[in-house]
């Protein structure tokens, strides 16, 4: 999220925040004591309310995620008793809140930089080009609204012709229509010299 939270955590490098998140998750799994887990959860919640209230809001907004935690906790309570369920609830609840804090206090740009830096070893092995990662992420964000628009157009066309909305006939035109623009987009990327490592491709078209 690019939302400014006004939290001091925005100044902490993403790599440090990720390491902290990882350490906290390990610590919470080392103990099964309800007292320790309960006080950890309480501390995290209080700290968040004091220093990063926006994260708590976002955490509550992510109810589909909290719902899966609740469902698994109920399932555990039914099978293994309340004690176990409570341990699970405290652990996963705390971790999801801490993770949300990291997410809301780190901009997408910072994340892309971190991912790109992490991918440099892969580049040395010849597996991937690290700089392509930012472009790929940008491409997805750019074209999700277009693909969605295309899907809605296919739905409209079905309605106009009185066809039943079947997943097969809805999805195939969306996929083909979307992939058809790949040639144009790739040409544009090459023509603008955005990637330094691409090779011209011999190809002619019908126009």
């Amino acid at each position: 999220m690019r939302t400014p939270t006004g939290s001091i955590l925005e100044c902490v490098p993403p790599a440090v925040k990720l390491a902290a998140l990882f350490s906290i998750s390990v610590l919470l799994f080392l103990t099964g004591s309800l007292t320790l887990l309960g006080s950890a959860a309480g501390t995290v919640l209080v700290l968040c309310l004091l220093f990063c209230r926006f994260a708590v809001l976002q955490w509550l907004k992510a109810w589909p995620l909290l719902l899966t935690i609740a469902a698994v906790a109920l399932w555990t309570a039914y099978n293994d008793g309340y004690q176990e369920a409570l341990v699970l609830l405290l652990r996963l609840g705390t971790l999801s809140l801490v993770a949300t804090v990291v997410t809301v206090t780190t901009s997408i740009g910072e994340f892309i930089e971190t991912v790109t830096r992490a991918a440099i070893p892969l580049e040395r092995l010849g597996i991937a080009n690290a700089r392509d990662i930012g472009l790929a992420i940008g491409l997805v964000m750019r074209f999700v609204p277009d693909v969605r628009q295309r899907y809605l157009a296919v739905v409209d066309a079905h309605r106009a012709r009185g066809l039943p909305l079947r997943p097969t006939t809805l999805i195939a035109p969306m996929v083909i229509g979307t992939l058809k623009s790949a040639d144009d987009i790739a040409d544009a990327i090459d023509a603008r010299g955005i990637r330094t490592n691409s090779h011209p491709q011999k190809r002619a078209e019908n126009a």
Partner: peptide
């Protein structure tokens, strides 16, 4: 390519970010 710019037939496809 640095000297020749190209505006394609479907310009929406060339805006990539």
């Amino acid at each position: 390519r640095a000297r020749v710019g190209y505006v394609f037939q479907h310009p929406a496809n060339q805006i990539v970010l």
